[in-house]
Design a protein around this nucleic acid. Sequence first.
DNA 1: CCGCATCCAAGGTGATACTG
DNA 2: CAGTATCACCTTGGATGCGG
Lengths: 146, 146
Amino acid sequence: MSGTHTEVPSLVSAPLPHPVPADEYGACPVTDVLRRIGDKWTVLVVVLLGRRRHRFNELHRSVDGISQRMLTRTLRTLEQDGLVEREVHPTVPPSVEYGLTPLGRSLLPPLSGLADWAVAHHGEITAARGRATGEDGQMARSRPAQ
Amino acid sequence: MSGTHTEVPSLVSAPLPHPVPADEYGACPVTDVLRRIGDKWTVLVVVLLGRRRHRFNELHRSVDGISQRMLTRTLRTLEQDGLVEREVHPTVPPSVEYGLTPLGRSLLPPLSGLADWAVAHHGEITAARGRATGEDGQMARSRPAQ
DNA sequence: CCGCATCCAAGGTGATACTG
DNA sequence: CAGTATCACCTTGGATGCGG
């Protein structure tokens, strides 16, 4: 790949609203969203809910490793952001179902694009990471491990 | 969305390696990558470097709001992950140029996809967020703000 | 079954000052 | 110019126990 411009995506060539405000999170939608879905469990939950609606404990079992606290917090945040919908069945004992809203479903395609990249290049990243840290006692460039 | 299956993206319909390991970060490439670029400055730096090579203080001025410490850490991490390349010119005073590696450039398209989504729907998220928290003193569903 | 409250550890982030 | 060091704060995340 040398001269093939490859059709630069929008954000790469133009978007940045202003040179870079970055004063508050709300100033940069991209950073704001990235930080939301960049936590430990959000993506996993969104993907699971993207497949079908789930009940609380069903998610709890599916993710396995997440604590109730984190599952609750994750769902709360997603609900507050309008990505997830909560449906309470007034039964006894109570049952609650979670599902994606249209907005939440619209996140799936772009998220999938990034996920595909992650799966495709995770090996390279891991390799580079291993090359950079210790390995054979030789740092990549005479820099004393951070 | 009603009956139009809309061509479910890979991750949505199949991928998840196992039901969900999630034991360690390395177990899920998607989570691992998301957490890397989900920090406060990484995306901004990657996008800037995607436009052209930058010198350290040039980035420092462009982002404006980032501290030297965070800029250094962000660049270190990106370098360790093989996304950014560092070039030192042995001049005096010293000058260092940063640029994206091929791997780093390959991140741009999928990242742009998510960025476009963020820009397009950030308003809806903000609106939903405002609807959920206080606003008129009435919680969305009798739940005392977390 | 669903969820909240509390306590606590770990890491990200910022401010400031100092160095080759 | 391009960092490094230190300190302090805040958020994230985990463990456990209680409540509707």
